[in-house]
């Protein structure tokens, strides 16, 4: 039981480190958002499961935290991506951009 907990904790720590490294190394904003969101979601998932293995009576609170993080983290990153796109910080290395063809009449807010 404790061994499984240790394994999950170390995996979670590695993915958090990877998220930080991805934030630092990626060249433009959208790729930073991608690396950060994925790595931190799986990292927190894994660390919470590791803690649940070490303390089995906390499982319900941990389930609530996992559900909340898995729902809220992609929504937050999507909100940042949309805001970045709309504030004209479009990266220059895109090979295809369908969002630009959308037409201005849909630009509601």
């Amino acid at each position: 039981m404790l061994i499984a907990s240790y394994v999950f904790l170390v995996i979670g720590g590695l993915f958090f480190l990877l998220g930080g490294l991805g934030i630092l190394r990626m060249p433009d904003t959208f790729n930073r958002i991608q690396a950060g969101t994925k790595a931190t979601t799986l990292g927190s998932f894994s660390i919470l499961i590791g803690v649940a293995f070490a303390n089995p009576s906390w499982i319900f609170k941990i389930i609530i935290i996992i559900v909340f993080i898995v729902i809220s983290n992609p929504i937050g990153s999507s909100a940042i991506a949309k805001a970045t796109y709309r504030s004209n910080h479009i990266p220059t290395n895109l090979v295809q951009d369908d969002l630009a063809k959308r037409g201005e009449e849909h630009d509601t807010n």
Binding site: N31, N93, L94, V95, Q96, D97, A100
Partner: peptide, 9 residues
């Protein structure tokens, strides 16, 4: 870093 980014619909 291998990248070929784009926005698709």
């Amino acid at each position: 870093i291998p990248l070929n980014p784009g926005i698709v619909k």
